[in-house]
Nucleic acid binder design. Structure first.
Length: 258
DNA sequence: AAGGCGCTCAACCGCGTCAGG
DNA sequence: TCCTGACGCGGTTGAGCGCCT
């Protein structure tokens, strides 16, 4: 049994969106909110597939999107997150307010990948290309309160990405990471409100429904099942900082690449 | 001036996951 | 418990643009 198409393809537009279509979509979502993408096109009077509407909204029309070039700090953060998460673009995007997974994915493939290759670093393993087959672990560690300014640009060639830490964690070089990390819950709301920080993590449905409330471990916020390796919800100290960083929005200012 | 080429990024496609019946 | 439908994600494609020859 084949998969049924997500929409009636015979009567849907494809390709670039027109200004009128954009306006219709924005107007509809402003009036009714997001959700139920399948029925949205019909309700909004659009000859588009629901998936197409969702993508257009998320990647282009959303009002909170930050347009324009990536900053050096964002570059740096993307590289670090990719070294931890692999091609989990949605998770990386969740840590970059105003950026979308598609945008980051494109940026990675067009800019960062090349940049890393130019430095002799394998963009997949984040290890020096000459050392790619070694099969050893990459030590990623972090040291808070060190300036990170343009560390990516200053990273010496043929050096693995590495940071220095109070608590050193070893991660397998395989992208299927065992994220056994000390982290903070993404929503320490009161504290974040005081600092005017907006939680950037999109919390998975199951986590919300499991009644975690505002006390999620970083693993859960990344979509790891509660209780699975990488989840530290049950830990007595659910308020530890993720690698010494604030929750919600990864503060990478204390990270350093060597 | 124009054709070729490479790059960028918006959009599409197919699959995995999950909730609800 | 199984099935189905909807959503979300990551990989891929291709139109449009700018640069080069």
């Amino acid at each position: 049994m084949g998969r049924s198409p997500c929409c009636e393809k015979a009567h849907t537009n494809k390709g670039a969106w027109t200004k009128e279509e954009d306006d219709r979509l924005v107007a509809y979502i402003r009036a009714h909110g997001e959700g139920c993408w399948r029925s949205l096109p019909k309700a909004a009077g659009l000859m588009r597939c629901g998936k197409s509407c969702r993508l257009r909204w998320i990647n282009y029309l959303r009002p909170d999107l930050k347009r324009g070039n990536f900053t050096a700090d964002e570059d740096d953060l993307i590289i670090k997150l990719h070294s931890l998460l692999g091609n989990k673009w949605s998770l990386i995007a969740a840590r970059l307010p105003g950026r979308t997974d598609n945008e980051i994915k494109n940026y990675w493939n067009t800019h960062i990948r090349r940049k890393l290759l130019g430095r002799g670093i394998d963009p997949v393993t984040h290890r020096p290309i000459a050392d790619a087959g070694a099969g050893t672990v990459t030590t990623i560690s972090f040291q808070p309160n060190k300036p990170n300014a343009a560390v990516a640009a200053q990273a010496p060639q043929h050096q693995p990405i590495k940071a220095v830490a109070t608590a050193v964690v070893k991660v397998p070089r395989c992208p299927d990471l065992n994220l056994d990390l000390c982290i903070s819950p993404p929503c320490q709301q009161k504290e974040d409100e005081e600092l005017d920080l907006k939680p950037a993590v999109v919390v998975k449905r199951e986590v919300l429904q499991a009644g975690h409330g505002g006390s999620l471990c970083f693993g859960c916020s990344l979509g790891i099942q509660k209780g699975a390796p990488g989840c530290s919800c049950s830990s007595s100290n659910s308020h530890h900082r993720f690698l010494g960083l604030r929750s919600g929005m990864l503060d990478f200012r204390g990270l350093e690449m060597k």
